[in-house]
């Protein structure tokens, strides 16, 4: 592998992960970092829900995505939608009917792959909040460069120079695809290559998460 990425990483190497739970005083919270990309996620719930949002057979999942600077725009709204649909597929919402599970993601540092970071942060916060889940979701981003090489977990600079940008979310048990999002021009083969590489990287993220949880439990956090 050549070392021509901006931060001297290998093409398929993810940035160092840092996980901190109980970051703010909420029902559950976590700070997840992919290198210099950091998202703080806090969970409130199951809590009281407004009558107009109430669902009689399951919990309402409300996601707020706050950007690093400025107020939320269309991009953030898309992220909220993506997060909500991903979460609805893994949270056991039927256990808490007529309640609200509120998820707030605050970007603390933005250095690319922010959606993947947010999905991972949300997973950690949900675990911290003790919300019942069928599975957990982990996400990894990648870009395809103009020369066809695939870079896993790109930095902001690498995303700007790319030809296409992809985000994949997988579940933990079977590593099946929960969600994917792609921008730019790419061939079918390139897409499936990205999928396979992201899958391998997702396994690394899962291992990190497992270690963090184990550490927190043995240390009584």
């Amino acid at each position: 592998m050549s070392l021509n990425r901006v931060d001297k990483r290998k093409f398929t190497e993810i940035r160092p992960i840092s996980i901190e739970q109980n970051y703010v005083n909420k029902d559950g919270s976590a700070l997840f970092k992919f290198g210099d990309s950091a998202v703080l996620c806090s969970i409130n719930g199951p809590t009281e829900v407004k009558v107009r949002d109430e669902k009689l057979d399951k919990a309402t999942i409300d996601v707020l995505f706050k950007p690093w600077i400025g107020s939320p725009g269309t991009n953030e709204k898309t992220h909220e939608l993506v997060l909500r649909s991903t979460l609805e597929s893994i949270i056991q919402a039927n256990l808490h009917p007529r309640t609200l599970i509120q998820v707030v993601c605050q970007v603390l540092m933005d250095d690319g792959s922010i959606l993947a970071t947010a999905i991972n942060a949300t997973t950690m916060a949900l675990i911290n909040a003790g919300i019942s889940m069928r599975d957990i979701a982990v996400a990894v981003s990648c870009v395809i460069c103009k020369d066809g090489t695939i870079l896993i977990d790109p930095k902001e600079q690498e995303i700007e120079e790319n030809q296409s940008f992809h985000t994949f979310a997988f579940n933990k048990v079977s590593l099946n695809l929960l969600f994917c999002e792609s921008f730019g021009v790419f061939t079918e083969k390139q897409y499936f290559d990205c999928y396979e590489l992201s899958k391998t990287a997702a396994q690394e993220v899962i291992n990190e998460i497992h270690n963090a949880i184990k550490y927190n439990i043995t240390n009584g956090r």
């Binding site: 893994i90 675990i127 019942s132 889940m133 069928r134 599975d135 957990i136 579940n171 933990k172 048990v173 998460i209 497992h210 949880i213 184990k214 439990i217 043995t218």
Partner: peptide, 8 residues
């Protein structure tokens, strides 16, 4: 053992 959501 320590488990995560989704573990069998």
């Amino acid at each position: 053992r320590t488990v995560l959501p989704g573990d069998l």
